[in-house]
Design a protein around this nucleic acid. Structure first.
Lengths: 136, 136
DNA sequence: CATTCTGTAATTGACTTTATTACAGTACAA
DNA sequence: TTGTACTGTAATAAAGTCAATTACAGAATG
C-alpha cells in the first residue's frame, strides 16, 4: 500500500462491481480513472493472477469480477498490489559494527509486521461490496 | 511512513536513547546508519523542530534527546516524518462524469483515515524506551 | 478478413530521493 | 586569538522510481 497501485486496483474493482456481469474494456476503465490504458491492463493482469478478476481477449473482450463482490475483501486487494512492506522495508544497510546498527533492521521489520497486522485486520473487515455500498 | 525517513529518524533516536546524556555527532550517527551526514543533519533539524531532540553547534556539539526515552512515543516519530498520508492520498484525478470516478477519492480518503487511525494506535502504545529495550 | 479488443515489451519523461560539495557560523580549548 | 571540530543549510548532481507512451503480436467476433 506504499504506492498508487492500491487506489487504481480498487477503482478497477469498484467499477466492475458496479457493472457486475459486464465485460469492461481497459479503455473505458482508463477513462474513469484518468490514466493510461496500458497501466490498467497491467493492473488487470495482476488482479487476474491473484484470482480476483477474469479477462477475455478479442473483440467484445474486457474484464469482469471472478467472484461476487461480497467475496472480495479489501485485504485481498492489498495483498495483490503489495510488493514491499508498508513502510519501506529496511533498505538501509546499517553498520554491523554498531550495536544499534547491527540489530535495528530486525526490530524495524518486527514493528512493520505488527503494524501491517493491524492494517490487514481493518482491510479484512471490509468487502468490495461494502465499499461500493457507500457510493450514493 | 511512506518513505525511508521513518527508519532513519527512529535509528537516530534509538542511538541517542542508547547513549542517553551524550551528544552524538552527525558523522557518528551517519556511520551507524550508513548514509550521508547531511541527511542526518536534516533529519535532526526536523526532529528538533518537533521537540524530540536538542542539538548544539560548535566543537563537542551534536544532538541528544530532548526528553526521556519513555516519554517519546513512536507515534511522535511518525508525526515528525509524515508529510503525505500513508497510502498515497488520492492523487489520481478521476473522471467526474463517471459515477464511480466522481466519488471514489472521497471514499478512499475515508478508508485511509480509518487505517491510519489503527496504525497510530499501535505506534502510540510503543515508546522509544520500549523499542530500545528489545535490543539484546 | 476487417475490426476491436487484450497482453506485453521497450522507451521516454517526469518526478522524487539521496549523495555530494561547499561554505558560513558557532563553540571549545590550547 | 587561533586552530579545530562541529552544526546548519543551500545548491547541485546522481540515482532511482513511477507513469505515459509507442508499438505490435495475438485473440475473438461479426
Amino acid at each position: 500500500m506504499n504506492n498508487g497501485r492500491f487506489p487504481i486496483s480498487l477503482h478497477i474493482l469498484t467499477l466492475m462491481a458496479s457493472y457486475e456481469g459486464e465485460w469492461l474494456s481497459s479503455d473505458l476503465i482508463a477513462g474513469s480513472i484518468n490514466i493510461n490504458p496500458v497501466l490498467v491492463r497491467k493492473e488487470i493482469s495482476n488482479l487476474r493472477n491473484h484470482g480476483l478478476i477474469e479477462s477475455k481477449e478479442g473483440k467484445n473482450g474486457g474484464a469482469t469480477l471472478a467472484k461476487p463482490a461480497d467475496k472480495i475483501r479489501l485485504s485481498d486487494v492489498y495483498h495483490a498490489v503489495q510488493q514491499a512492506s508498508l513502510l519501506g522495508n529496511s533498505k538501509n544497510r546499517p553498520n554491523p559494527a554498531c550495536a544499534v546498527g547491527k540489530q535495528i533492521n530486525q526490530h524495524l521489520d518486527k514493528l512493520y509486521q505488527d503494524i501491517e497486522g493491524a492494517l490487514l485486520h481493518k482491510l479484512d473487515k471490509m468487502s468490495l461490496a461494502d465499499f461500493l455500498r457507500q457510493f450514493g
